Amino acid sequence: MSEDRVPERSESSDLTPPPPEPSASELLGAALGGAARSAGLDPNSDASTGRVVWTAMGGWRGVVESVLPSLTFVLAFTLTYDPDTETGNLPLSLGLSVGLAVVFTVIRLATKSPPGPAISGLIATVAAAALALFTGRAEDNFIPGFVTNVLYGSAFLVSALIGWSLIGLAVGFLMGEGTAWRKDKRKRRVFFWLAIAWAALFAARLAVQVPLYLAGDVTALGTVKLIMGLPLFAPMVAVNWLAVRALYPTHKA
Score class of each variant (00 low, 15 high):
83 P>Y: 14
86 E>A: 15
86 E>G: 15
89 N>H: 13
89 N>S: 13
90 L>T: 13
91 P>N: 05
92 L>N: 10
93 S>Y: 11
94 L>K: 02
94 L>T: 12
96 L>W: 09
96 L>F: 13
97 S>P: 09
99 G>R: 09
99 G>V: 13
99 G>T: 12
103 V>E: 01
104 F>L: 09
106 V>N: 05
107 I>Q: 06
107 I>Y: 02
107 I>T: 07
110 A>W: 01
111 T>Y: 00
112 K>N: 03
115 P>L: 00
115 P>E: 00
116 G>V: 01
121 G>M: 08
121 G>A: 10
121 G>V: 09
122 L>M: 11
122 L>I: 07
122 L>S: 14
123 I>F: 13
124 A>D: 04
124 A>N: 05
124 A>K: 08
125 T>W: 01
125 T>P: 01
125 T>S: 12
127 A>K: 02
128 A>D: 02
128 A>R: 03
130 A>E: 01
130 A>Y: 03
131 L>S: 08
132 A>M: 04
132 A>T: 08
133 L>H: 09
133 L>C: 11
133 L>A: 14
134 F>V: 11
134 F>A: 15
135 T>Q: 07
135 T>E: 05
137 R>H: 09
137 R>C: 07
138 A>T: 15
138 A>D: 09
138 A>F: 08
139 E>H: 01
141 N>W: 02
142 F>C: 07
142 F>W: 02
143 I>P: 02
143 I>L: 12
143 I>H: 06
143 I>W: 08
144 P>W: 03
144 P>T: 06
144 P>C: 10
145 G>T: 06
145 G>L: 07
145 G>F: 03
146 F>P: 10
149 N>H: 08
152 Y>Q: 05
153 G>S: 05
155 A>N: 03
157 L>T: 11
157 L>N: 11
158 V>P: 12
159 S>A: 14
160 A>H: 07
161 L>E: 04
162 I>T: 12
162 I>G: 09
164 W>F: 04
164 W>K: 08
165 S>L: 03
165 S>P: 06
166 L>W: 11
167 I>C: 13
168 G>R: 01
168 G>M: 03
169 L>M: 14
170 A>P: 00
170 A>N: 03
170 A>Y: 00
171 V>H: 05
171 V>G: 12
172 G>Q: 06
172 G>R: 04
173 F>R: 12
174 L>R: 15
174 L>M: 13
175 M>D: 14
176 G>K: 07
178 G>L: 01
178 G>M: 05
179 T>A: 14
179 T>P: 01
180 A>R: 10
180 A>Q: 08
180 A>I: 01
181 W>I: 05
182 R>K: 13
182 R>S: 12
183 K>C: 05
184 D>G: 10
185 K>T: 15
185 K>Y: 02
187 K>Q: 15
187 K>I: 05
190 V>N: 12
190 V>L: 12
190 V>T: 15
191 F>W: 04
192 F>A: 04
193 W>I: 12
194 L>S: 13
195 A>E: 07
196 I>R: 06
196 I>M: 14
197 A>L: 15
198 W>S: 14
198 W>T: 10
200 A>Q: 02
200 A>T: 11
201 L>M: 12
202 F>L: 07
202 F>K: 05
203 A>S: 10
205 R>E: 03
207 A>F: 03
208 V>F: 03
208 V>S: 01
209 Q>G: 01
210 V>Y: 03
211 P>Q: 04
